[in-house]
Design a protein around this nucleic acid. Structure first.
Length: 574
DNA sequence: GCCGTTTTCGGCCCGACTGTTTTCAGTCG
């Protein structure tokens, strides 16, 4: 009997099926249909099993008769006929090969059929034995690139990318709350907003911690209990994610939260400071002689040591403790400081909402302005806009502006930086836009010189205002281009071209260290959601947390400024 | 396989980059 299937479980199964069908060589549109259905099921707000119970699966967008039947079978029996069939034909490990950069469906099949490769481990063995380089269709260069791809994959494997950990932690908090906890907080590296997290840490208060832990260990999503005592437990979920829950009383919650948020280095420094004053900092409070001082809030912990409260994102012992000692921490940078969002997509390119829908959702968030930055023409897969379609879009934007004044929708575009460094629309078109963003999407794996030259050419362009997701990395996935980042900061600072902190959890780019270096080099930043739906607008809040981690302050970020100041800072208006 | 203000068929996800190759196939966004 399979355990209850969440929307994510069902979507994952459909994605896996799509991968297998692709390796099998099925028609591309059929495969795309399964992927589309999977993405759609993820966004359904209620459990898909409830939709199934009402017999309404076919009303989910992208789900027709055939997929509805398969999902119904999956929910009822844990599998369906086509899935069994292709799984019998292609071992599951072969689909995993698709995760390796430079291995697509054709090569996965080739590797399996000609070399018997059935897993990532087999692939490594084939590389080591040089059988890959000798295979027709791969060759020496292909084998080298696959080896590099494999290496880039490895370190991320054991840790959860933040994009997975954040929603998981939020869902777990809700579950712990329902188990009767008085208060539940996310702790650990998720709270510090580290890119990749070893495990998801939660801290809860309860009148009866022991019973709470019992109930938590018995949750249906828990596959195994790794360790357990009266105050804490560590479990593995069915998808392999490790989760630790610490439970205590309300009065010690601040101490627990501080201790379990870390980082290790940050806490070690705090312990040393405490010891120098003859007290001891422990997970459940300060021990001063015979008395234990438990803190119900984190601020109390810091105040007890004579420190300003330090935002969790900054707790890495990179200078924040010294500042807090001197009372010189910068004022907190909050999502509420953002006046608008400069990076989002609509139905004109690959977004799922109209200009008006995005504007209304932005108004609801309290923004004063947004910039629509749909893709430009050469990103064909995203239905990028030509000069002509940009003109048509301008009319729609004008109409929304007339309706929603004084709220302002700016027209921008996310321009492709081509292989030769040029943008893919002429300058007179760029001049007609309110704000121009440039992105390097292709050729990221060419050498340092090539990618750096292209980024510099965008930064130095007299009409480009923002370089979006500058490194091109994907958290826990692709490492991004080998840019000479210092050269990028220098050009950005000199030209007054802003560098984006892209708040999409899959990107988080600039990353923390890059953003901190950029600010130090005198660059201006923007924080963009890169939203493809109204739900995606929340990404700017993640961007602000990343900015905090990078020690960036609100004055470093262009879109904390009122509209007039923003417009005045753009190249075309200077 | 899904979808429909062109509704039961025929479109939908195109173009750049790379080198496995020397004229095209595979991968990627």
């Amino acid at each position: 009997m399979p355990h209850a299937q969440s929307n994510r479980d069902v979507a994952d199964t459909l994605r896996r099926l799509a991968d297998l069908l692709e390796i099998r060589g099925e028609a591309v549109f059929k495969i795309a249909a399964y992927r589309r259905a999977a993405e759609s099921i993820i966004t359904v707000a209620e459990p898909i099993s409830a939709v199934h119970a009402r017999g309404e699966l076919e009303q989910v967008p992208g789900v027709g008769k055939a997929i509805a039947q398969k999902v119904a079978d999956l929910l009822n029996t844990g599998t369906f006929k086509l899935l069994d069939e292709v799984q019998a034909e292609i071992p599951p490990g072969v689909a995993a090969l698709l995760r390796v950069p430079d291995v697509g469906p054709k090569r996965a099949r080739l590797l399996y059929e000609q070399l018997g490769v059935q897993s990532i481990e087999d692939l490594q063995a084939a590389l080591d034995s040089e059988r890959l380089a000798a295979t027709k269709g791969i060759g020496v260069t292909g084998a080298r690139r696959i080896a590099e791809g494999l290496a880039s994959l490895r370190p991320a494997d054991s840790r959860l990318p933040l994009g997975r950990a954040v929603p998981l932690a939020a869902a777990l908090c809700e579950q712990v709350r329902q188990l009767g906890a008085a208060q539940v907080e996310i702790a650990g590296s998720v709270r510090r907003f580290a890119d990749l997290v070893g495990d998801v840490n939660l801290v809860a208060s309860s009148d009866d911690p022991k019973t709470l832990l019992d109930a938590f260990c018995s949750l249906p999503s828990v596959a195994s209990v790794e360790s357990r005592d009266d105050g804490a437990c560590r479990v593995l979920l069915h998808d392999g994610a490790p989760v630790a829950l610490v439970a205590g009383t309300q009065g010690e919650l601040g101490s627990l939260l501080q201790y379990h948020t870390g980082s290790k280095q940050h806490n070690a420094r705090l312990r040393a400071i405490a010891r120098s004053r003859g007290i001891e900092l422990t997970p459940r409070g300060f021990i001063d002689g015979n008395t234990t001082h438990r803190c119900s809030t984190e601020d109390e912990v810091y105040a007890y040591l004579g420190l300003q409260p330090i935002p969790p994102e900054m707790r890495e012992d990179t200078g924040e403790i010294e500042l807090a000692m001197e009372g010189k921490l910068p004022p907190p940078f909050l999502a509420a400081h953002l006046r608008g969002d400069l990076h989002m997509h609509t139905t004109w390119s690959d977004g799922t909402r109209t200009v008006r829908e995005m504007a209304l959702a932005a108004l609801e968030r309290g923004y004063e302005y947004i910039c629509i930055s749909d893709h430009s023409q050469s990103l064909g897969v995203a239905n990028g806009l030509s000069a002509e379609r940009l003109l048509q879009q301008r009319q729609e934007i004008d109409a929304v502006n007339a309706e929603l004044r004084p709220f302002r929708v700016l027209q921008g575009a996310e321009m492709e930086v081509r292989g030769d460094g040029a943008l893919d629309l002429p300058d007179e078109v760029l001049r007609s836009l309110d704000l121009v963003t440039a992105s390097v999407h292709s050729g990221l794996r060419r050498g340092r010189e090539s990618v750096t030259a292209r980024a510099l050419s965008a930064l130095n362009h007299p009409l480009v205002d923002v370089l979006a997701h500058p490194s091109g990395r994907l958290v826990g996935g692709r490492p991004g281009g080998d840019f000479d980042m210092d050269a990028l900061y220098a050009a950005a600072a000199q030209m007054g071209t802003a560098l984006e902190i892209n708040g999409d959890l899959a990107r988080l780019d600039l990353r923390d260290t890059h953003a901190r270096a950029a600010v130090a080099a005198g660059c201006t930043l923007t924080i963009g959601s890169d939203a493809h739906s109204t739900e995606g607008l929340v990404n700017t809040a993640y961007g602000v947390r990343l900015a905090t981690r990078a020690w960036a302050q609100r004055e470093h970020v262009l879109n904390t400024r009122p509209l007039d100041a923003l417009l005045g800072a753009l190249k075309r208006n200077r």
